[in-house]
Amino acid sequence: MAQHEIRLDAQLRSEFGKGAARRIRRDNKIPAVLYGHGTDPVHLTLPGHETMLALKNANAILTLSFDGKEELALAKDVQRDAIKPVIDHVDLVIVKRGEKVTVDVPVHVDGEAAPETNVVVENGTLSVEADALSIPESVVVSVEGLGAGSQILAKDVTLPAGVTLAADEELLVVNVTAQVTAEALEAELAEAEAEAGIEKDESDDEAAEGDAPAAEDAEKTED
């Protein structure tokens, strides 16, 4: 499914710097910059709550209304606070209707692989080229019935109509591996420890078993 346009009322801003940005965020708004298509960067203030909801969708197309005009834009970089669930700043790039853009689209895995296998997503996104107003929300990769050793490369992924691959065709997207049993894992660990010269400490039970013959010999000697 393609992205929907999301309308946001923005405001031009003339104050810059960290202090100005903090004041904007305290007012529950987000500082942003809009650029592209040979235009000078435009510094904007975006509504905080509406922008956060819009940017939950990857590659959301925003219709920005400001200064009596409208611009279509794609979020190029979203800087989020390391602790609080807020957005610190957004870089936006202007897009035009009918224009092709290159974006990273999330990979969605569908289906069940064969029993006793693990499905490993090696790359959670795939770079594609699509019409700016027809960017898919995700690309679906089916692993239904795949056995251990199966690999899905970028060139194997079925893309929606009008969308072309921009990533390396040989990029590994999904890898299906055999499940490792507890016994095999313990054997591998023991082998690795032996190669590294690590001596494993005896458990209490093993130590007790080892001490038993010695105790018996002592009793015979006393007799």
Rank of each mutant, 00 (worst) to 15 (best):
1 M>E: 10
4 H>M: 14
6 I>V: 14
6 I>L: 15
10 A>Y: 02
13 R>H: 05
13 R>N: 03
14 S>W: 08
19 G>K: 06
20 A>H: 01
29 K>E: 11
37 H>N: 12
38 G>A: 13
40 D>F: 06
41 P>K: 00
42 V>P: 04
43 H>T: 12
44 L>E: 01
49 H>Q: 07
64 L>T: 10
68 G>A: 00
69 K>D: 07
69 K>C: 09
69 K>A: 14
72 L>G: 12
73 A>E: 01
76 K>Y: 14
77 D>E: 08
78 V>Q: 03
80 R>D: 04
80 R>I: 02
81 D>M: 06
82 A>F: 09
85 P>D: 03
91 D>S: 04
92 L>R: 04
94 I>C: 01
94 I>H: 03
101 V>C: 04
103 V>K: 07
104 D>W: 04
104 D>V: 00
106 P>I: 00
107 V>A: 07
108 H>K: 15
109 V>E: 00
113 A>W: 07
113 A>F: 02
114 A>G: 14
114 A>N: 03
114 A>E: 08
115 P>G: 06
118 N>L: 15
119 V>I: 15
120 V>W: 02
122 E>H: 14
128 V>N: 01
128 V>S: 05
129 E>I: 15
132 A>I: 13
134 S>M: 13
135 I>Y: 09
139 V>W: 06
139 V>G: 12
142 S>K: 06
144 E>M: 13
145 G>D: 07
147 G>I: 03
149 G>L: 13
149 G>H: 07
151 Q>N: 12
152 I>R: 03
153 L>P: 06
153 L>K: 15
153 L>M: 12
154 A>D: 11
156 D>A: 02
157 V>P: 05
159 L>T: 04
161 A>G: 10
162 G>K: 09
162 G>H: 11
164 T>W: 08
164 T>D: 09
165 L>H: 13
165 L>W: 10
168 D>A: 13
168 D>Y: 07
175 N>S: 15
183 E>F: 04
185 L>G: 09
185 L>W: 11
185 L>H: 14
187 A>K: 14
188 E>S: 10
189 L>D: 02
197 G>L: 05
199 E>H: 01
200 K>I: 05
200 K>Q: 13
205 D>M: 10
209 E>A: 11
218 A>C: 06
218 A>N: 08
221 T>I: 14
